[in-house]
């Protein structure tokens, strides 16, 4: 860990101002950042501790939305009565991630900013365009087991590793961001994370001097909510693939199908075409296959991770079958 100045700002705006410096990083739970600082993947000169600045509350808004403060821990979010009752896909996604020890520390905002687990990103003696622009991608010609099959670029095939944001993407949640000039903006979770393109170092749309203040969940909707995570170990492992689904039926037809996928791309993957395809249809194995085809029509494997394409297709089918109570 490189030496850094540890600062505890007096206010959120102060924190945002301090974070404007490109050599400064905000720290909340620290479960990902400290890991990366020990490896010198992250080497901030200044650490801005944003804990104890409020933002630890979950509040019910009169319009039926639910606001989760950026510093609400994963544990607090997963255990909140409203989230358990109205947004079980989110509670389930959070509980499927990491461990109780880590969830007790990890925060909502921090988890959205979690960086990739790519083995080449976390090893500073290997090439990585995300960590060191222009150094190359070790994974494309190397071991790409964890890596993306959708939305990749020739620069980077890393995945976003989290679970929580996948459920938030299915829920169409919104991220609230405060800038150093006290301006605020709101970005849909679905647009918060970036694809690698030719700027692989960019995980998300946050600009220097911007801080996440909250995530708002839309009013609850009818339907079955499922979070399905496929992993090598039965616990404490990142997803090979995961599916967050909110599926509602009207009679024997699908009336709502909000889906998002983890482990497949540089961001929680949301493809609006799936909803268009599924809504109004009778559930069937053929329909689920069609959905899989659509989801993965542009998928590209890199050898080691080719399996993710059939795995994602099968996991999607399993989730749709469960949600629609269809035998396949």
């Amino acid at each position: 860990m490189k030496p850094f100045q540890y600062t505890r700002p007096e206010s959120l705006v102060h924190a945002a101002q301090l974070s404007q410096d490109t050599e400064a990083l905000a720290i909340a739970g620290g479960t990902n950042l400290l890991d990366l600082m020990k490896l010198q993947v992250e080497t901030p000169d200044r650490l801005v501790d944003i804990n104890r600045l409020g933002l630890g509350e979950i509040t019910e808004n009169t319009d039926g939305t639910l606001r989760i403060g950026a510093l609400v821990t994963n544990t607090a979010a997963a255990n909140h009565p409203r989230i358990r009752a109205d947004y079980p896909v989110l509670a389930r996604a959070i509980l499927a991630g990491a461990t109780q020890q880590l969830r007790n520390k990890a925060t909502t905002g921090g988890n959205l900013c979690q960086r990739t687990r790519c083995y080449y990103f976390t090893n500073i003696d290997q090439p990585c365009n995300k960590r060191e622009p222009g150094s190359g991608c070790g994974a494309i010609e190397g071991v790409a087991r964890l890596h993306a099959v959708l939305g990749t670029s020739t620069e980077c095939i890393a995945t976003y590793p989290g679970d929580m944001a996948v459920a938030m993407s299915a829920l169409d949640a919104a991220v609230h961001i405060l800038a150093e000039d006290e301006s605020e903006r709101t970005v849909p979770v679905r647009d918060f994370h970036c694809l690698p393109g030719d700027t692989p170092w960019r995980d998300n749309v946050l600009e220097p001097g911007e801080i996440i203040t909250a995530v708002t969940l839309p009013p609850p909707v009818q339907g079955k909510q499922i979070y399905r995570k496929v992993r090598e170990r039965s616990s404490y492992a990142f997803a090979l693939t995961s599916v967050a689904a909110i599926i509602a039926m009207e009679g024997d037809r699908i009336a709502r199908a909000d889906l998002a996928f983890g482990g497949l791309a540089h961001k929680p993957w949301h493809d609006p075409r799936l909803s268009t395809l599924l809504v109004g249809k009778l559930p069937s194995a053929a329909l689920f296959d069609e959905a899989g085809d659509l989801l993965l029509e542009d998928a590209q494997g890199f050898g080691e991770n080719d399996f993710k394409i059939p795995l994602a297709r099968r996991t999607l089918a399993a989730v749709l079958a469960e949600a629609t109570e269809t035998e396949i």
């Binding site: 720290i27 400290l34 890991d35 490896l39 501790d49 461990t99 020890q101 007790n104």
Partner: peptide, 25 residues
């Protein structure tokens, strides 16, 4: 690095990995 749990302690009633926490915080 928060990958084994051997450093688990209880802070303010909650268990955490003490390796992924700065003492000054």
């Amino acid at each position: 690095h928060g990958q084994c749990g051997a450093c688990t302690v209880i802070v303010n009633g909650m268990r955490i990995n003490s390796c992924l926490a700065l003492a000054v915080m």
